[in-house]
């Protein structure tokens, strides 16, 4: 069994790190109210623009390529996730494990070649 107490320090670290960064964000907000630096106004709170008021909503459609990259990322990152356990157990799985993984990589490579040829990796 995995010794879960190994991971306890990480959990404690998470709590401390969250507390620390929360403090950094919220403490200055309180301090600025005390020092009088907190003086919001309508123009100050407007979103950043070139000087004119914004013409349109900033959340509009964007290029479909970003989706493509995201989908490709999911495929390849999952593949990497398969490789991690394989990489540390190569001595146990031997040639059968190696060949199986190579077949898997080969299949993936075919998909990659297809995406490349179809222009999924092109920008412009």
């Amino acid at each position: 069994m995995v010794d879960l107490t190994q991971y306890l320090p990480i959990l404690i670290f998470l709590v401390i790190a969250l507390g620390l960064s929360g403090l950094f964000v919220f403490l200055p907000m309180g301090v600025s109210r005390l020092t009088g630096a907190h003086k919001p106004s309508k123009d100050k709170l407007a979103e950043y623009e070139c000087g004119f008021p914004a013409f349109e909503d900033s959340r509009h459609q964007f290029d479909v390529r970003f989706y493509l990259v995201a989908i490709l990322f999911i495929i390849f990152d999952l593949e990497a996730a398969f490789l991690f356990p394989w990489a540390v157990s190569l001595d146990l799985t031997g040639w059968a494990g190696w060949i199986t993984m190579m077949v898997f990589l080969g299949e993936l490579l075919i998909g990659f070649a297809y995406a490349w040829k179809k222009g999924a990796l092109e920008w412009e």
Partner: peptide, 17 residues
């Protein structure tokens, strides 16, 4: 640290912080 924290009025405040 002593600056004012500006949260734009159009922003989603929770996510922004």
């Amino acid at each position: 640290f002593l600056q004012e924290t500006i949260i734009p009025s159009a922003a989603n405040k929770g996510l922004f912080l």
